[in-house]
Computed example of a mutant assay.
Amino acid sequence: MRPLIATIRLDHLRHNYQLARAAHGDKTLAVLKANGYGHGAARCGLALADIADGFAVACLEEALELRAAGIAKPILLLEGVFEAEELEAVDQHGLWMAVASEEQLRMVERANPSRPFNVWLMLDSGMHREGFLPENYHAAWHRLEASGKVGSITKMTHFARADEPEVPMTFAQLETFDAVVKGLPAGDESVANSAGILCHPRAQRNWGRVGIALYGVTPLPAGCGQGEALRPVMRFSSKVFGVRELAAGEPIGYGDNFVTERPTRVGLVACGYADGYPRRASTGSPVLIDGHRSRLIGRVSMDMLTVDLTDLPQAGVGSEVELWGEAVSVNEVAAHAGTIGYELLCNVKRAHFHYR
């Protein structure tokens, strides 16, 4: 059996949720979109079902997977619905949904639900990705209220740069949000994502939305906020299954982009870009081999990568390699690949998932 394993620490998942909820100070949705950021949405949802206030996913298909797994807590569709026909399932399964466009608003107005919808009305406070512009927000609110199809409306927005604490845009978005919702009927509000929860106390409202931090990955710079208290949920590991000795001056892998500078012991590891390890990861990307830090050398292949065993004489065939996890941060690997930890976690596949 190929030795590529994603070990998922559900106790760490619970710890991270409880830390985020305490930091936010009120109800908090656990975001399980993209298959729980690659961790397994249903298994993560079940592990949190007794402590989470609710869950959030991107779309209807993801919500139905959670309902089929037996999760009865509220589930918010962060992207809302794409077709009017989906509203029947929203109604049947008691789902909550974002409304972020004129098209979605019209779908609600034309629907005939058996019970009022729970709607989260998105304000575009400056990110300019989705949501109603400030000058149109009140009208959208009143149309929902007048439709007779909606039981509650949560005011929401999304931050563009909350993971950059020194950038003033987050404060500007908060000011825009507060100014726009002023004068509307009192009700629940939601503005804080993971970075907002961990680093922006002014973003504390009725509902937080914890995403990447739930999985133990801080979206913030080192030493900022409460990110250091998170515990990584996924440990992505494999084993060395081949070793060779190369003299100085020998190329390794596709493209000859790495040439040995000294006699080098090379370990061949069962993991490649088809498994989710980034092809763009550069020589020097960190790995942990039998508990000792070493580095990636050469270009990542589809199914394999190569690591430096030269200074680890005890390492060889069968040695365990942590690609990321508790000792090697996924953010550190992502930085060497010119991307973010989110992408690496979401791309994991062909691994054997072990839950504990």
Score class of each variant (00 low, 15 high):
P219D: 00
D178N: 15
E145W: 10
M234P: 08
E65A: 11
G45Q: 04
I197M: 02
D26P: 01
V210E: 00
G267P: 13
R21Q: 13
E83L: 09
I75T: 02
V321Y: 08
R209K: 08
L13C: 07
L246V: 06
R262F: 13
V348Q: 07
L214M: 04
W96V: 00
A213E: 00
H24P: 05
L133A: 15
I252R: 09
P74C: 05
W207S: 01
S147D: 03
M122V: 14
P286E: 03
R209M: 10
K239V: 11
A22W: 01
A203H: 01
P221Q: 01
C346W: 01
H12W: 04
L305N: 06
N347I: 00
L344T: 06
A34W: 09
N257D: 14
R9T: 02
A327P: 00
E261P: 06
E85D: 09
D311P: 01
L309E: 03
C199H: 11
E109Q: 15
L220S: 10
L305W: 09
V119T: 03
K27E: 05
N206W: 06
E332K: 13
R115I: 03
A84W: 03
E135G: 08
L121K: 12
E102R: 14
V269L: 13
A140F: 09
A270N: 14
A247R: 12
M304H: 15
T339C: 15
E88I: 04
P313R: 10
F82M: 06
E145V: 09
A162G: 13
